[in-house]
Simulated scan of single mutants.
Amino acid sequence: MRRVLFAVLGLAALLIAGCSSAVPGVPVPAASPEDDRQLVRDYFDELNAAAEEGPSTQRDFLRRSQHPDYADGMCELGGLTLTIDPAMSTLRVDPDWVPPDAGRDAEHPRGLVYVLGVSVSIRDDDGALLGEQIGSQRVVVLEGRTYGFTPCPTG
């Protein structure tokens, strides 16, 4: 019996050794949903802080935080600023979403797409409130950073 046990253990060790391979790169722990929740919260905090500084600062923030796969899809907001109040309790994964203006053959953005309810206040460059809307917004967590898609004004 002992001899059979050693034979099985030896065979298992050979199989494991023969099937293992090194994976290049540095291991990175997977983000938890709570980590992503904080990243998303931080994104909106930074967006709103940029709005307080004015249209130019917010435009710079939106340019830096535009999803890299859709960097050429930015809309100009002119002198408008957006303050966005996210309803974090509505945050959920949206695995099939693609940007609507990305074209017929658009692919799902790299990263983990989230959707959440938001309340948006739109102000002109003098700070006057032009309107408020409630809707949904998508953000993407990619490699530990949150990206968005610059909203386009509709007329």
Rank of each mutant, 00 (worst) to 15 (best):
T83W: 14
P86S: 11
P86T: 09
R123L: 12
S65A: 13
D105A: 09
G73T: 04
R64F: 00
Y114N: 01
V93W: 12
R123C: 06
I122Y: 14
I84L: 07
R104K: 10
C75A: 15
R104V: 07
G103C: 03
S119A: 13
V113M: 04
W97A: 04
C75W: 14
G103R: 07
L80N: 07
E107I: 03
L82M: 10
V120G: 00
F61P: 00
M88S: 03
H67Q: 02
E76T: 12
S65L: 01
D94V: 14
D94T: 11
D101N: 09
E107A: 13
D72K: 10
C75Q: 14
S119G: 06
L80K: 07
C75R: 08
S119H: 15
Y114G: 01
V120Y: 03
L80E: 10
P99K: 10
R63T: 05
G78L: 11
V113D: 05
F61M: 01
D105Q: 13
V115E: 13
V113C: 09
L62R: 06
V93K: 15
S65C: 04
G73A: 11
V120F: 01
V118L: 05
V113L: 10
M74G: 06
Q66H: 01
S65D: 00
G111E: 12
H108P: 00
S119R: 14
P109D: 08
G73S: 07
P95A: 15
